[in-house]
Design a protein around this nucleic acid. Sequence first.
RNA 1: CGGGGUGUAGUGUAUCGGUAACACGCUCGGUUCGGGACCGAGAGACAGGCAGUCCAAUUCUGCCCUCCCCGACCA
Length: 403
Amino acid sequence: MKQSSLFPKTRKEAPKDAESINHKLLVRAGFMDQLMAGSWTLLPMGWKVVTKINQIIREEMNAIGAQEMLMPLLHPKEIWNETGRWDKANDIMYKLSDPRQKEYALSFTHEEIVMDLLRKNITSYKDLPVSVYHFSTKFRNELRAKSGILRGREFMMKDLYSAHTTEENLMEYYEKVKDAYSKIFRRLGFNFKVTKASGGVFTDKFTHEFQVLSDAGEDTIYWRDGDPEAINEEVLKGDKKDYKSSKAIEVGNIFPLGTWYAERMRAYFTDEDGKKKPIWFGSYGIGPTRVMGTWVEVSHDNKGIIWNKEISPFQVHLIGLSGKGEDIYEKLKNAGIDVLFDDRDVPAGQKFNDADLIGIPVRLVVSDKTGDLSAQAGEIEYKERTSDKTELLDFEEVIKKIK
RNA sequence: CGGGGUGUAGUGUAUCGGUAACACGCUCGGUUCGGGACCGAGAGACAGGCAGUCCAAUUCUGCCCUCCCCGACCA
């Protein structure tokens, strides 16, 4: 991608209302744009980042046998009435009606929809277990959207649902998902804690949250060294004196929901003894857009964002000075490298500042000073976003470093 | 939803009763070309909206809206 045609341009100043780090940096660097409170466009680079986050999630979901699909976002009132959540979730659910007065909800989650699929398609214990997931928009009427992209009214979520014949089988899978989620957040590079929490409007049982330690978080979690899990303040009763604590951002949450949904929606299967039994159910969510915002909160400096190679919008940022770089750009592309080539006719300082702001982990510079592969010796300046050191490498060495 | 802020060119700000200025950005020309370079010339705003006060309102008053922050709420 040539930076001269990248949409949009970077900004020198953050919007004046922006206070949170992710809001300031993601807007300045051109990753997202605000339409209204809690509502964001993911601009081309922002979408690339989210796509990479999604891909990591997808790989780990597929690895535990989950099947990807896509469900509607416009839901009929009737299905929400079946569980009583049309009224129970009134505060958070966007409701609308069409010209004929038929009422709908914009999806804030999909338990009811999956349960409907299950009752239509699952008849025997032989049909279970099943786990399905999708990536889609969630609408939640937050009383107060805030903190940039961390708490929006419309955001992306990967939600996974699993169905089982027994509680044991559900809990076995629940643990699998817990491991898969841990693997995802480890791959993404977060310092996070698996945290015991309550279930909110979803279940009376305990649940687990995946909490990234950050002052920008809304939750407070407690843990003791050596414990496998932290505890959310909301469920930690009693003495906190032996615990360490931190603010944290919830990036994922898993719920062992049990048979509550199946009982209300008549989703039964026939077991080995020919008896009708309710399906055991669990749901599991990760918010990729919040993950992006969280990454910026925990990985930036005073110059800009610092992506890691897993979710960086591009693998390398090639800066051409004095009109150089085009041939290196072509070579990198041909080598399969996803490169952002700053071919703009602007001062070098502006290019370097933008590179720092955008935060691609590897920066290459080609100029009169470095020489040019097509010319003679061929040297490319190599620098990592997190380091002040630069070194001169030839093309092959650069490729080796990147891969 | 309660409380507190906020709203002026694309962005960030100034003016604070006499009809809007500056910086950045943008356009054109020229000089530059390794950390947002320089010179010159331009374009760009019925000052969030609606009422009201006043000879006169961006400026004062009221209502509404917006966005941000604190709280409540919250997969």
